[in-house]
Write a protein that binds this DNA or RNA. Sequence first.
DNA 1: TACAATATGTCCATTTCTAGACATATTACA
DNA 2: TGTAATATGTCTAGAAATGGACATATTGTA
Lengths: 111, 111
Amino acid sequence: MTEDPKKQFVQRINRNFLDILILRLIQAEPMWGYKIIKKTESLFEIKLRHGAIYPLLNTLEAEGYARSEKITKKGRVRKVYEITPKGIQLVDAYHEVLKEQLEKLDLQKEA
Amino acid sequence: MTEDPKKQFVQRINRNFLDILILRLIQAEPMWGYKIIKKTESLFEIKLRHGAIYPLLNTLEAEGYARSEKITKKGRVRKVYEITPKGIQLVDAYHEVLKEQLEKLDLQKEA
DNA sequence: TACAATATGTCCATTTCTAGACATATTACA
DNA sequence: TGTAATATGTCTAGAAATGGACATATTGTA
């Protein structure tokens, strides 16, 4: 019952801002869906469903936040994604909002 | 519609972490549902539905994150909520997670 | 008198999301 | 040979969230 609240928040953040998580990961280093899943597992101990990841990657590309290139390596076809300038803008906007939120709530505590 | 991405993030955060938003507001200053709605409007330019706020406040109290006191002022019955130690713990956990997330993603960029 | 604002609450149809199954193909390894 | 791992994709039943209506009571104001 008393589940670790921190772990729950990690799950909530990654579930609700999965698009941002993906964009940040491919911003750090271009990668493909399967690797995003593995990376998230090792970084955050969160298992992403591939049934959620692949459609989302296609959506992000269709909306211009990412672009992909098919790369065949040892018979494995990978769709390697990289972030676009529009995607970078989105991630930056997200960071700005987080900062603003924290600032506003700090001011409140002072008042 | 010039879909301002920052405004959209504010909405997403406040929608998905409404419980945390409320706890932070009542941590800064004890208040009641109606005031939370007005405060959020002025602080974040986000309109919260009272149909979402009131049941959530009751849930937060039932789960021990907040406690309330009925105060009648000029014929207006207000349920003034304040945060509990358990609620403070939850907000702290949320902050820690946010910090950790940012740290991990900074490391990635260096790698 | 009537309408806006303050204040709290429930209910429900629609929409959206989630978990997980179904589907396919190659490589690595015991 | 068979199973695990790599790799990408679709589909859907059930769960959850959303918007907004319904409901009630008081105060302030035009």
